[in-house]
């Protein structure tokens, strides 16, 4: 094995014969790409399951203005997500999710600026933009925590639902949602909400941790000693991927 590793750049003909990097990307970046592809399949599977379960439940037939929550049909997302912090009882459909989307896109922009600064070995600029990225990530997580809390506690009026208790159908009013009951619609709607946004939120949280590690290592001069800032680029790929997933979650969970 040891003699094969040393013949670099001798094969002039075939690009794929070995001893070269046909993708012209470093090992670490390439592996990050392949990891992100596997992660893309996981998220696709989750979102496609949402599609399957949504299509196997009846849709609401009437005019959206007359829409009410019921266990009988799938809810219209903009009727579910219409609360904004400090504006209790004011229906503002999708405004809060829209703010979250802009926050995540902006933190993606500051990440690109950090990567760009890394290319120039500009430690001060990398530190500055990494801090903005971390701040964006944390703000997004805070918004998501509020969104979850609101979803779990539910609205003031609640929804009536029938339960089979001791062989009798009893009508009860449900407030909010958990994994067994759901005021907004069929219980799988809440389960999918928790699973998809939760899985994405876990990615954001680990992204913030990685970003912090990169910031720490930049600030202590680790990458200056190493001579290059490629780690910023690799973690940047991951962070953009998290933003990309949110773009899809936003469309297929909140808008459609």
């Amino acid at each position: 094995m040891s003699d094969t590793a040393t013949v670099v750049g001798t094969s002039s003909g075939n690009l794929w014969k070995g001893g070269r990097s046909p993708f012209k990307a470093s090992y670490g970046k390439l592996m990050m790409w392949f990891f992100l592809m596997s992660d893309a399949f996981t998220f696709s599977a989750l979102l496609i399951s949402y599609g399957l379960i949504r299509f196997r439940n009846p849709a609401y037939e009437g005019h959206p203005d007359d829409f009410t929550f019921s266990q009988e049909w799938w809810p219209i997302p903009e009727k579910v997500f219409e609360a904004v912090p400090f504006l209790h009882g004011v229906p503002l459909p999708l405004v809060f999710v829209g703010i979250m989307t802009f926050i995540l896109i902006l933190s993606s922009v500051t990440m690109v600026l950090a990567v760009e600064a890394g290319h120039r070995n500009d430690r001060k600029a990398v530190e500055k933009w990494m801090l903005w990225t971390i701040l964006g990530g944390l703000t997004f997580l805070g918004c998501q925590a509020w969104e979850w809390s609101h979803f779990i506690h539910g609205t003031d009026f609640g929804t009536a639902a029938k339960f089979l208790i001791n062989g009798e159908w009893i009508t009860k009013t449900i407030h909010g949602a958990n994994l067994t009951v759901n005021e907004y619609g069929p219980p799988p709607f809440a389960a999918l909400f928790f699973f998809i946004t939760g899985f994405h939120g876990t990615h954001v949280a680990s992204g913030v941790l990685l970003n912090f590690l990169i910031f720490y290592r930049t600030a202590t001069g680790y990458y200056d000693r190493r001579g290059h800032y490629e780690m910023v680029e690799k973690v940047g790929l991951y962070w953009h991927f998290v933003d990309l997933v949110w773009v899809f979650v936003f469309t297929f969970f909140y808008l459609v």
């Binding site: 896109i105 922009v109 690109v112 070995n121 430690r123 600029a125 001579g227």
Partner: peptide, 29 residues
């Protein structure tokens, strides 16, 4: 890391590149 070094040359920012980044951000917005 065999390529460890203490000589890091900071290059000036490329205005064109940064403008492009903000342009893409604007499109996304």
């Amino acid at each position: 890391h065999s390529e460890e070094t203490n000589e890091v040359v900071v290059q000036p920012p490329d205005k064109e590149k940064i403008r492009k980044i903000w342009k893409v951000a604007l499109i996304l917005g």
